[in-house]
């Protein structure tokens, strides 16, 4: 139970970062953190039903659930791809408006248009 509470806490910290941080790089940090939290949740919970890695060789006991592991491989990679694209956009925003501050960027965008 403690593990679940800690993972939820991690998720909420990341989410608060996305919503509350003004620096867009920190918002991207938050996105990475909530992604990690969900991946951790899948793996931690999926590992409760077995006691050996899902690789079948000789006589092994019950393996952990391999399905969440395979799904999380995909989710991790997709998360990093989105992060990279977000960073490229953040780079462009910095070059155009000279700041990582989301309010400052908003202000400049709306002043110009």
């Amino acid at each position: 139970m403690l593990e679940r509470i800690l993972i939820l806490l991690l998720f909420l910290i990341g989410f608060a970062g996305i919503v509350g941080m003004r620096n867009i790089i920190k918002k991207i940090f938050g996105l990475t953190i909530i992604n990690s939290a969900v991946v951790l949740l899948f793996i931690v919970e999926g590992s409760r039903i077995g006691n050996s890695a899902p690789i079948i060789d000789a006589e092994i006991g019950l393996v952990v659930d391999p399905v969440p592991q395979a799904l999380m491989l995909t989710a991790i990679v997709i998360g990093v791809c989105v992060t990279a694209l977000a960073l490229a956009l953040a780079f462009r925003l910095y070059k155009a408006y000279g700041s990582f501050d989301i309010d400052e960027i908003h202000r400049q965008v709306h002043r110009e248009s």
């Binding site: 793996i43 393996v63 991790i76 990093v80 960073l87």
Partner: peptide
Amino acid sequence: LRAPDVAITEAAVGAGVSTVV
């Protein structure tokens, strides 16, 4: 937690690629 595949991926992608970017 016996998820070696995910561990390798997280180390390579999360700690590697994402940090570089």
